[in-house]
Design a protein around this nucleic acid. Sequence first.
DNA 1: GCCGTTTTCGGCCCGACTGTTTTCAGTCG
Length: 683
Amino acid sequence: MDNAAVAAVFAEMGDLLAIVGGDAHRARAFRNTARVVEGLRAPLKDMALLGQLTSVPGLGAGSIERIHQILQTGTCPEHQRLIARLPRGLQALLQVRGLGPRHARLAWEHLGVASVEQLELAARSGLLARVPGIGPLTVERVLRDLDGRREAPPARLLLSEALVVGDAIVGWMLDDPHTIKAEQTGSARRRRETVGDLDVLVASTKPLASSARFTAFPGIREVLLAGDGRASVILDSGVQADLRLVSAENWGAGQHYFTGSKAHNIAMRIRANAHKLALSEMGIWERKLRGRGRGEENRKIARRLSPCTDELDVFATLGLPFIPPELREGDGEIEAALAGRLPALVEDHDLVGEPHLRARTATDALSIAHALHRQGRRWAIWVRPAIDVAVDDARRRFRRDARRIGAVTGVRILCGVEVAIDLEGALVDGAGVTLSAQVLAAMGADVDVVIGDATLPDGVVLDRISATARLLSAIGSGRLHGLSRVRGRRLPHRPAGVDVDLRTVLLACARQRVFVEVSGEPDRLDLDAPGCRLATETGALLALSARPADDGLLGRGRFALWQARRGWVTAAATLNALPLAHLLAHLRLPPPDPLADDDEAGDDDDNGGTSDDDADDPLFLPHRRLELMTRLSAFLRGEPDPELQGVLLKRGDNALLSAFAILSGLGDNSADDSADDSADDEG
DNA sequence: GCCGTTTTCGGCCCGACTGTTTTCAGTCG
């Protein structure tokens, strides 16, 4: 049994106990245990064997004993007792919105309802509404939820999608005169890779009017509730959106509360509690009364320590440093903050390189390199498929283009080649042909970086051991510098991806100095955040990759960055943060040599990119060649040069393209490396 | 069942909204 299966047993015990009406605290403790077990980063059976479970916060003697029983038999006596008392299908009723454990028990006791199908039957027949304690409005709500599921099953949005919709709602609220501030919070602010609900926080001068404004957002299927403190709606897409209203004075408290996660909030409130304080979205108050729903009463007699206008106030009042939203998962971040062990998370300004620039043509690579330069990147690995650079000539052109783009943009371009990995772990080209040692050696001599793409062919399933052995074999070949798409995940439907022994794979990567890519593609984000955290523990370097490509989505870099931050990654664990000299050393390449580019240029047997037509313009006279190169470079970097621009426009309608064509010596009409290869190649 | 700035007992996060049990409990985030 794996961790998830053990967690499921505890979750079921918690649900069934709640339905039975047992001790609510005990039920919550079981659910909490399920959450703790699910969040463990090592296999439970290993930890049990090594006696490591006693040191896990949240696991007591009772849970540990049950874990041993469940690992051996798949169940435990308490679990057996509960499923003997209640039909197991009852647990599924809790998934119905508006139906909690109490109503589930009533439906079962009075009508024998034990499944969602039976619940629907009871609701439609009118029987459910006659159960004491269940009214017609509850029945209506249950039916609405069931109908809604049929129309559009509950969807999880990709983070990229959630940010777009969230921005639209925030914009809609900011257009309202009563809005002082508005921001998307919740799991989108924590940069979770997928988002279930959209959460928007608004500071308002007139809460009820703001609530009405929110429920008038275009594209709402259903309004669940609308008060002066909050409102909830279901969008046409089936996604729920929640509005939370606070005063401007309580902005920071509201921001902290509504960013979550739930587990983090509970841990923070328990900490407040220990200091005789009550933390909520109303700020931090002295705690005078105990019991459920006493907050308002409490606030009448208690003293407010801080309204928490800024989120920092929340942490400071509880004696904590600021905890970045990406870390707020209730996964040890508060303990780490208290111990001063909070990691200095990698930031955008730490990143000086882009490890995976994808472009088929030099023109595309050039424009991407410019954009990277504007983002502060000083090196990039231009990665091309093995099949594109299979022949020697192609690799020479590749290298030459890379050097020229580097000279023009100020971004050092390393030549990378991407190879696939077959089922046995051998390196193959895109067509599945094994790359012989000879070919790999020739390739290795010509390109700087070889990256193995771990993606499995569609439909192929490997067991954990085979999948791990496959990657270890590829890493052990000594030919790889990097490994990408380790898990082959696809979001939102296959978040787990291939089952591999990630710790072993990452340890091998650390030993062989193979960096591991974190892809910024919003539907991959491979490695996942726990994988990133494991990488920092094993010492494997992570390459945060925007994979800027023909579709030009440089912004994807932030997705990789966020993912790494969620994995507690520091700049020290990041390949992108290495200055060029350190990167070259890491890759065992010679140090940067500024003269190398000139030598290379001299080898070219062309005329410096000028054509016969150029003789018409004095700029193209041989003695002005250096000046021309300098001005072209500056122009390509974005500096205005009207005279040069006029000359360039005489050669074609795209001045930038012409400038690059001259600089790279590719001729008049095209910088596309496929068009002019024969004419241009090495004279 | 877990835990300790309340430490081997006694408490367990907080507040809003809603529905139905006319004073509070259930559900949710």
